[in-house]
Design a protein around this nucleic acid. Sequence first.
DNA 1: TATTTATCGATATAAATATATCGATAAATA
DNA 2: TATTTATCGATATATTTATATCGATAAATA
Lengths: 219, 219
Amino acid sequence: MNRDEQNKAPISKQTLNRMPAYLLYLKNLDLQERQSISASAIASDLNLNEIQVRKDLAAVSSSGGKPRKGFDIHMLIEDIKAYLGYDDVNNAVIAGAGKLGQALLCYDGFSEYGLNILAAFDSDPAVIHQSVNAKMVYPIEKMPEICHLLNIQIGIITVPAAYAQLVCDQFVKSGIRAIWNFAPVLLNVPQDILVQNENMAVSLAILSKHLSVKLKKND
Amino acid sequence: MNRDEQNKAPISKQTLNRMPAYLLYLKNLDLQERQSISASAIASDLNLNEIQVRKDLAAVSSSGGKPRKGFDIHMLIEDIKAYLGYDDVNNAVIAGAGKLGQALLCYDGFSEYGLNILAAFDSDPAVIHQSVNAKMVYPIEKMPEICHLLNIQIGIITVPAAYAQLVCDQFVKSGIRAIWNFAPVLLNVPQDILVQNENMAVSLAILSKHLSVKLKKND
DNA sequence: TATTTATCGATATAAATATATCGATAAATA
DNA sequence: TATTTATCGATATATTTATATCGATAAATA
């Protein structure tokens, strides 16, 4: 019998953040036709602590692992996908069909996780009514209508910083519940709207900072 | 007198991760000609704990804050920038001049943090020797030569998953010390190479997961 | 100038996260 | 079949991170 999902303790944020790494790693093993893997082996390959990995997997695994053998890879993949929301249907739209917006529209990896980017919005006549990777770019005025129609929960902002707040407000009016923001702007949103900022420049800056700390240590 | 940087306790990882938000926020205030700001006000605007903000700022601030007034905005901005590595010169190159690679090449925000993306590499004749945002795309064979010549420390991977490991190996041979990886692949690198994975699909999946957790809570 | 007050920064406590220990057990081996 | 062993999973400890408390102080106000 499967464990009761409802009764499980809520997973920790840090564990959630490590799931992607496990998933990627397990898919690789699956491609190599491996059947099972131990927490110890995963830990050693991913440079993580063994107990941490075991606890992480215990938190999402529906069937647990077996002594001397470890976890069933295929089953674990399904468990993690289920946990990350593969079971829900999550529809998203993009505001801003520039280079970055188009890059996201073209990226086919989202559907892997049950996520669909259904459409984009822009104000530039050059891209409006064009399709990018079979997804239409609509004039930005159509946003509320289309979002409500398609029951969109997630909005992605890839417009220039100057327009980000404006677009954000429109998203909120359009019934969006979560925003993935690529503009280097702090968005002002109602309490119940979830915002995840993705500042490319700062991600790179942080990498560079980690690098310089590391280089100094090796002096 | 400035506090001695050398003698400061190393900043925590979580604090480092919050720096971007502070920086963005402070720049906004600076644009509005504000002179100073208190930790309490920042906390309330960014939805953070007041003591946490105070501790974070104390960790990077060179001059501290004043009772009743708070921190000097301009000085804090400089302190954070310095901390994030603005003082170092960090040069990066991109492997993969597709939509995402071009989006990064076009993004001018990196130089804000002392980061320069100097060039890109690709194997597609359609983009080789073209320039994107005044940055050249070179054939991928030229990578070691150019990287060594320009003393490049950071490599960015935006090629399809199937080529990512190959490109990664070439980066390592070319003397790169840190890799920012956008391909959904676990890269195999020597111990001393820093890898930061940026899996777009999973970022969105995690946002969606957080959203569904939140929606369930409000039932 | 004296008093009040917002805010800092130091120190203390609490919560979350990571790591260690160890008995139980399924598979491998003798 | 009996013994060994790798690995799990539960429980315990340590570390890191977040939050609370409080005295000190610079600026505002009386």
